[in-house]
């Protein structure tokens, strides 16, 4: 499998926007993988946290925005706590989510979410944060 690194994709506007919103410099990351090693949601991710950053570093923003990973992230901040370079990956994930949400593209429907929460007896606060995170 070969991917092409394209000048117009590397440091593209949208990636710079993601950096700006998150306040993070994606090139601080030296790909040690410590974030992935400690991430409680890593098993559910199609791209590991360090791979998310890697894709951004080489300009593959679509791979990131289309991945499950950014929505699966539990926002637990474990990656940030452990990262030796102090990369706040949680913020980066949030910025990636905003890229989609700001186009009014919800990730969950309000009705199903509420229905599911009633069936599964999920506390309201969890629902609120879910909606905050996954809807525009």
């Amino acid at each position: 499998m070969k991917i092409e690194i394209k000048n117009e994709e590397v440091r593209s506007e949208i990636i710079q926007r993601i950096e700006e919103i998150s306040g993070e410099n994606i090139y601080k990351c030296y790909q040690c993988g410590k974030c992935s090693a400690g991430c409680p949601s890593a098993d559910e991710m199609d791209l590991l946290p360090n791979q998310v950053i890697r894709n951004l570093q080489i300009g593959k923003v679509d791979a990131v925005l289309n991945s499950r990973s950014i929505w699966v992230c539990a926002t637990c901040y474990m990656c940030w706590i452990r990262c030796p370079r102090g990369v706040n990956l949680t913020s980066l994930f949030e910025a990636c989510r905003l890229m989609t949400l700001r186009q009014n593209l919800d990730q969950v429907g309000l009705k199903e979410a509420i229905k599911e929460s009633e069936e599964m007896d999920i506390p309201q606060i969890a629902i609120i944060s879910l909606l905050r995170k996954l809807t525009s």
Partner: peptide, 27 residues
Amino acid sequence: RGKVSKVFKRGDKLVVWGADTLTGQTV
């Protein structure tokens, strides 16, 4: 190739959680 995030005890063994960034998996 990857850093370890956590070491903890299980029985008389130590469990190491790390990442293998080359296969893209946690180990």
